[in-house]
Nucleic acid binder design. Structure first.
Ligand code: MN
Ligand code: MN
Ligand code: ZN
Ligand code: ZN
Lengths: 141, 141
DNA sequence: CCTCTTATTGAAAATTATTTTCAATTATAG
DNA sequence: CTATAATTGAAAATAATTTTCAATAAGAGG
């Protein structure tokens, strides 16, 4: 993943700097959505003079290249995670923040019905499931 | 709607001031999601000395009472609209911003499958459809 | 109506999140 | 190795939201 991202950045004319590589490594390997500050803190371990502003700038490019996406949650919408290339849906653990992709939804019928009923031409959908992962279920209750 | 909201505010110990009433009227009647600033601008028409800070404070209370909800869209998550009492789904026009509720989704099977496959205990879901409303389809293209 | 208490107000300051500016540095094409 | 243009981090600027505060006013109880 890591490597692929660096290639893509490079092919799009972006230079591969240490700051950028640190951000790429952190976010490409995370199973949680991370905020710019969280990424910054982690990145400082690899490169202690990195600036928060470089984190923002790298996120901007990764988002533009659709390698990452913003994750919307009830508490905040400032976190980012890996994006899947294809159309996708998220399954989020409200306790620990773990996120997985899932598929297998079949909304065709629903979309056709709503479309007919409302006159909307529907082009996109967001589906997210929230719950508690297996691990967090064990840990408490 | 208007009246009902004022009653609820009142029953929860909140006083009914002109500033509050202006905000309630604006947001309870809108078919679009509105940002604090947009609400503020509209509210000034009714009460020209209202402060933006009162808009924020009223939104906070209306959200707490579940009369309004934040709307998440690709471009921003800072807008609010009426909340439906029951579980609900949104249909949004990406062109003009109109929003409707819809129901009739049947995600039981999907949720059971994902739950079994991943071990998550799923407690909630978000489903939003994006498209273009009948009106906006006519207007352009 | 009056009065008292306390929630609410708007202005201003403070905080937080993000973006822009800028001069110095550095990746990379050749 | 060199030249060029992208990138950097610091600092300033901007935007969004929250807090502080003294003045005001809603509304409970008389
Ligand atoms: Mn889907
Ligand atoms: Mn549903
Ligand atoms: Zn978990
Ligand atoms: Zn429309």
């Amino acid at each position: 993943m890591n490597h692929k991202w660096l290639d893509i950045l490079s092919k799009n004319g972006y230079r591969l700097t240490d700051s950028r590589k640190a951000v790429v490594e952190i976010i490409s390997l995370s199973t949680h959505a991370l905020t710019p500050i969280e990424i910054y803190e982690k990145a400082k371990a690899k490169r202690d003079d990195i600036g928060l502003v470089s984190v923002y700038r790298t996120l901007e490019k990764l988002e533009e290249l659709k390698l990452i996406q913003r994750v919307h949650q009830p508490a905040s919408c400032q976190a980012f995670m890996v994006a899947s290339q294809e159309h996708q849906h998220l399954l989020l653990c409200s306790t620990c923040g773990e996120i997985q992709f899932f598929d297998g939804d079949d909304l065709e019928t629903l979309i056709a019905t709503i479309s007919k009923k409302t006159g909307f031409k529907i082009s996109e959908h967001w589906l997210q499931l929230f719950g508690q992962c297996a691990n967090c279920q064990k840990t408490q209750s």
